[in-house]
Design a protein around this nucleic acid. Sequence first.
RNA 1: AGGGGAGUCGCCAAGCUGGUUAAGGCACAGGGUUUUGAUCCCUGCAUGCGAAGGUUCGAAUCCUUCCUCCCCUGCCA
Length: 584
Amino acid sequence: MNNKIIDTPTNFIRNIIEKNIEAKLYENKKWAGTPGPKKNHTNANEDFAKIRTRFPPEPNGYLHFGHAKSIILNFGLANDYEGRCHLRFDDTNPEKENEEYAKSIIESVLWLGYKFQDEVEDNLYYASDYFDYMYQAALVLIQADLAYVDKQTPEEIRINRGTLTEPGKDSPYRNQSVDENLTLFSAMKDGKFKDGDMVLRAKINMASPNINLRDPAIYRIRHAEHHKTGKQWCIYPMYTFAHPIEDALEKITHSICTLEFEDQRPFYEWVLKKLAENDFLDKPLPKQHEFSRLNLTNIVLSKRKLIQLVEENHVDGWDDPRMPTLVGAKRRGYSPNSFKLFMNRIGVSKTDSLIDYGTFEDSVREVLNDECDRRIAVLNPVKLLIENFPDDHIELCEVPNHPQYPERGKRIVNLTKELWIENEDFQINPEPKFFRLFPGNTVRLRYGFAIECTGYETDDSGNVVLVKCNYLPDTKSGTPGSDAIKVKGNIHWLSTKHSINVEVRNYDRLFNSENPNLFDNFLDDINVNSVSKSDVICEESIKNSSPGHQFQFERHGYYIVDPISKANKIVFNRTVTLRDTWNK
RNA sequence: AGGGGAGUCGCCAAGCUGGUUAAGGCACAGGGUUUUGAUCCCUGCAUGCGAAGGUUCGAAUCCUUCCUCCCCUGCCA
């Protein structure tokens, strides 16, 4: 089990890294201990980290399952190849980002079990900490006549960019002098212009078949307050310009992103190459590699749609256990190891894929089977009366916490004359192959006695309200006589006098169809029955559990104590049911 | 239509500098163990690698043509 979580199968990125290491690409890689341009690193020692990767979220939302894939990939690579993985906030757009998101992101990465700060170094970074460097990098490009300030309106820029099949047209400002560009860019920085008045553009090729190379904008004017730098800046670098620089300053070796950035790679390389040629950055330069993003059935993972679900109250907040966010997963009981096992199972490639949600749930079951102690709960109770049982007798039954791990200990559950059993465990007229309770049949009360069903009572509408039985005195579990009688059925039970009520919340898929994104409006596909609440009977030992405690309710599934639980009312979220092949 | 990617079993995914019978996982089917119809353990599961040609003693791996799907025309990331 552990090995399945730790041992990651090979993939194309690991192959690249191994080839790079073998080619001694990073033998003389310098690292000053903190990020910086070439002058900071040249006299530093060789980097002790064999490779460096990074997870670079924008702090404008909560992390979701897709991010988990990236986190596990990047941190996993660093761990496996004696490297380091940086957590870097890509906060280059002041209008969308804030500290609350950043805080939650940090918590989620830690929750998954990854560290970016230790006694050796602190690798928590903000792109906004590099704004000075980025400004310098822009100046380097302008001075090399590789960037210019464009006074065209956004509309003009759009029109002159051309189309997918037609080349663009050069801006009338494209051949401004270096001095003019320097003056203008400086004025931009000093707040002399309004948002959108002008923009700094890289000078590459307006006729490139790759639209991303048609003089992309690299700096824009935004008179906005930044969550980290306040009002210090009114110009901000674009992602496409900032990202390669961030990577290079941090001496990242492998910059791993999703497929939609493939077209961007030539520009990523252009920026690095030009800045290295002009002595701003040192080698080895980072290399970008792209993998396909995670797609799962019956959920949505686009940030826009997740925001909509929350803001329009289709769910109860970002951490609603139905949400495919990491904060939601935590409440739902999807443990970090579940994610790791799942990611190892699906692998990393460049193929577009759509993975069945059931595959994820299977990984959850496999991990939770090991991680969770067992408890007893009767979800849908009906009374069972043991007619030949002494009225006030309490039989103490030893119950193991985990059938495969005796070292996890045992607990005592009280057996009495009147019990709760599962409604589904009794049938008046048993269907074929049903081997639980029915009149005349013998089953075992799990960890207790074998019983024989002697009859039942119904109410006026024919519902069974009481099942009657006799117990077989010499059959108690763990005693020599217990094996004397063989039964096929094994049902769980709880004493009506020694049990407590708890609330259980059952969750189902948030969307009805495999791919809600195919709907004109994905909300039309929402599953209106994705949550149901019920009161259930639980064994007494559960009352000392606190939020985050997770159990398997035997024969049912995995459940986790929710933070909204009160002392007198514990609330459980159902993580996932057990596999059930009975109905197949 | 221009550019960039991808197509190997129901779902993933190795292999792809050509050379044993095309790894592995999940799912599925059958059998065994089991005081959870759970877990666990066995066994089975692509003469086939998007299609058609070609090169070769030999091709999923090389060449040609074709087909399908995804991404790109933000002063978002």
